[in-house]
């Protein structure tokens, strides 16, 4: 008997007390919790919660955005920036030409990305109550590694369209078949005396731009 049959056989014997006709799909599950905690100002709460976990939050109009992105890269002294294939070109319009644009290519090694300073992306959805941005590897976000290896991530959230109140609402907007990365502030750890410090392996600086269209 192979291990699969052994394990499944043990499970079935262990559940001898469960009536055979019991069908979990037919029994509704009691979900008494809230679908949203109804924040009065979801975008404001998103900004507040992101900042609480040490993300740097900026608000911008479409006209201001190119200047803001250029300034954020300059503040960091970025000499190179990864650009996802579907990023709106105007977002980087004011970034000086000396700043090297690195396309997101499947052949790129992690080692090569390690030499890049910053990355600019959009996002799939942002969750106000938890201060989270979610990436789903869409065209304006690129493969997962490009938002991981560079030390500086600029993430643009279109508000209010991309903002939801809560985790349940966020999950409904996402496609589980896509690779997803939920980001709530820059990388951090609580491993030293259970106290939170920011800055371990992921980008140590996270700029979130709330773009008001």
């Amino acid at each position: 008997m192979n291990a699969r049959e052994v394990v499944l056989g043990r499970v079935r014997r262990a559940l001898a007390d469960v009536p055979r006709e019991e069908d979990p799909e037919r029994e509704p599950l009691e979900r008494g919790y809230l679908d949203s905690h109804q924040p009065a100002d979801a975008v404001g709460l998103l900004a507040e919660n992101l900042a609480d976990y040490r993300a740097l939050v900026h608000r911008s109009t479409p006209e201001e955005l190119p200047g803001l992105v250029a300034r954020l890269l300059a503040e960091r002294g970025a000499a190179s920036v990864v650009v996802p294939a579907g990023l709106p070109p105007e977002w980087l319009a004011e970034v000086p030409r000396e700043v090297r644009r690195v396309p997101d290519e499947a052949a790129d090694t992690a080692r090569r990305l390690d030499g890049v300073d910053s990355v600019v992306t959009g996002c799939a959805v942002a969750i106000a109550e938890t201060g989270t941005v979610v990436l789903d590897a869409g065209p304006d976000q690129g493969r997962r590694r490009i938002t991981l290896v560079p030390d500086h991530h600029v993430c643009v959230v279109v508000v209010p369209d991309q903002v939801v109140d809560s985790v349940p609402q966020g999950l409904r907007r996402l496609d589980p078949a896509r690779p997803l990365t939920w980001i709530s502030g820059p990388s951090a750890t609580s491993d030293i005396e259970l106290d939170r410090v920011e800055g371990v392996h992921g980008p140590r600086r996270l700029d979130v731009v709330l773009l008001e269209e």
């Binding site: 896509r178 990365t181 951090a188």
Partner: peptide
């Protein structure tokens, strides 16, 4: 989980993947 574990509204990173994706991961 995050609130019970590290007392955060959400932990910094959550990864979700389904099988393999072409050219990513």
């Amino acid at each position: 989980l995050p609130r019970s574990s590290t007392a955060e509204r959400m932990n910094p990173y959550t990864s979700m993947w389904t099988g393999t994706s072409d050219g990513d991961g």
